[in-house]
């Protein structure tokens, strides 16, 4: 989880009520817990367990991936821009501290 998340926002200055599309991807092994190493021991599971997107204080949605989500988990979502604020996205996995990304959304 060393590199910063890659974020794309369709419009950082939307009109009020406009639907904004966001794409976000982080680098993460998403170790499923089903693979073994050379000695035959199962590698312990470590996947991104929770993703939260907030606009200012309001929680937009939560995404709970499982082991069926690809490596380097990609998420694309939309939201209606009702207020200006900071879009904060947080990825939480089972081992490391959470990863965060921010993007300022200003109503035009």
């Amino acid at each position: 989880m060393a590199k910063p998340p890659r974020i794309w926002v369709s419009n950082a200055k939307p009109a009020r009520g406009e639907i904004v599309r966001v794409r976000a991807q982080i680098e993460h092994q998403m170790e499923s817990g089903l693979r073994s190493d050379e000695a035959g021991r199962l590698r312990p599971r470590n996947i991104v367990r929770k993703f939260e997107a907030r606009l200012g204080q309001n929680l937009l949605f939560t995404w709970e991936p499982g082991i069926s989500i690809s490596q380097n988990p990609y998420i694309e979502f939309t939201f209606a821009a009702r207020e200006s604020g900071e879009l904060v996205m947080v990825w939480t996995d089972e081992k490391d501290p959470p990863l965060e990304a921010r993007k300022t959304i200003t109503l035009s």
Binding site: L59, I67, S68, A80
Partner: peptide
């Protein structure tokens, strides 16, 4: 899949939409 629940989304009324795209294995 070995784990059939691929993912879960919980939306709030503040979102204004219910749309998501992910990549599955």
């Amino acid at each position: 899949n070995p784990s059939p629940v691929a993912c879960r989304f919980r939306f709030s009324p503040a979102a204004g939409t219910a749309e998501a795209a992910v990549r599955l294995r």
